[in-house]
Amino acid sequence: MCAIELEPVLSTERLRLRRPRKSDAERIAAFCNDFDVARMTTRIPHPYGLADAEAFLHGLDDQDPLTAATFAIEHPQDGLVGVMGFYANEAGRTEIGYWLGRPYWGQGYATEAARRALVWASRDWGRRFVMAGHFSDNPASGEVLCKAGFLYTGEVRLLASAARGEDAPARMMVWLA
């Protein structure tokens, strides 16, 4: 594995994936304060304010580049439209998570970003498999992951959802390089 670039910038046909910055806080807060965005993630609480976004961004400074990478998903005209990241799950395996602001749903941006991020994770970060999960009541996320090359494992797990305030069933998936 080559040396890890600490702040990679990845490009797709329509998007740029880059490190989130402090100037993204207002857009992150606005998108994540939408309950329908937050409830489909494990970590985003609801309500979600500017202080939450600033704390999230500040926390990235402590992120270990050997085990985690976070990207702002940026549209050239609109700016930040979502966030995608890799992190070590409770078993120490690399897992991917993401969200998009509601105005950007259904346009293929999550699939496009995931495909590019996975190429980076394999070629530059040395990952041979990546885990993912989506809440069972979010089949659109399952479609994104399938289109990005993930396969269902057959496992359904109860995962905490900060926004929902309770556990919800999630369908687990794996991507193999």
Rank of each mutant, 00 (worst) to 15 (best):
T70K: 07
P20K: 01
D78G: 08
R39V: 11
Q77K: 14
R27W: 06
H75R: 11
R21P: 01
G49R: 02
D36M: 13
P103L: 11
A121C: 07
R128G: 15
A91F: 14
E13T: 07
R127S: 04
L66F: 13
F31N: 07
Y104C: 10
P65Y: 09
E54K: 15
G49E: 05
R21K: 12
L50M: 10
A29L: 00
D124Y: 11
Q107R: 13
D78H: 14
T94W: 07
P65W: 08
A110I: 00
A68R: 14
G59D: 15
A69I: 11
Y109W: 06
A121I: 03
G59Y: 06
R102M: 05
H75C: 01
N89E: 14
R102P: 08
R19G: 05
N89W: 13
D61N: 13
V119G: 01
V119N: 02
Y109A: 00
I96H: 03
Q107I: 01
A72K: 08
G49M: 02
G126Q: 09
D62H: 10
W125R: 05
A38L: 12
R116H: 07
E26I: 09
G59H: 09
F129I: 07
F56D: 09
L50K: 06
G97I: 00
A88L: 04
G49N: 03
V119I: 05
G85C: 08
E90D: 15
A132Q: 00
A113R: 00
V119A: 05
M84F: 00
A30M: 12
D24C: 12
N89F: 12
I28P: 07
M84K: 03
P103A: 12
R18E: 11
Y48D: 05
V37T: 09
K22E: 15
F71A: 01
A91D: 15
R18A: 11
E112V: 04
L6Q: 14
G101E: 06
L100S: 03
R102I: 04
A114P: 07
G92P: 10
R43E: 14
E26R: 14
E95Y: 02
R116M: 02
D78V: 14
H46L: 14
P45A: 06
R21T: 12
G85L: 05
R39L: 12
A91H: 15
R115E: 09
W120L: 03
P20R: 03
E54S: 15
I96Y: 05
D34M: 08
E7T: 13
E13D: 10
F56L: 10
F35C: 04
Y87S: 06
R21W: 06
R21Q: 13
R115G: 12
Q107T: 09
G79Y: 09
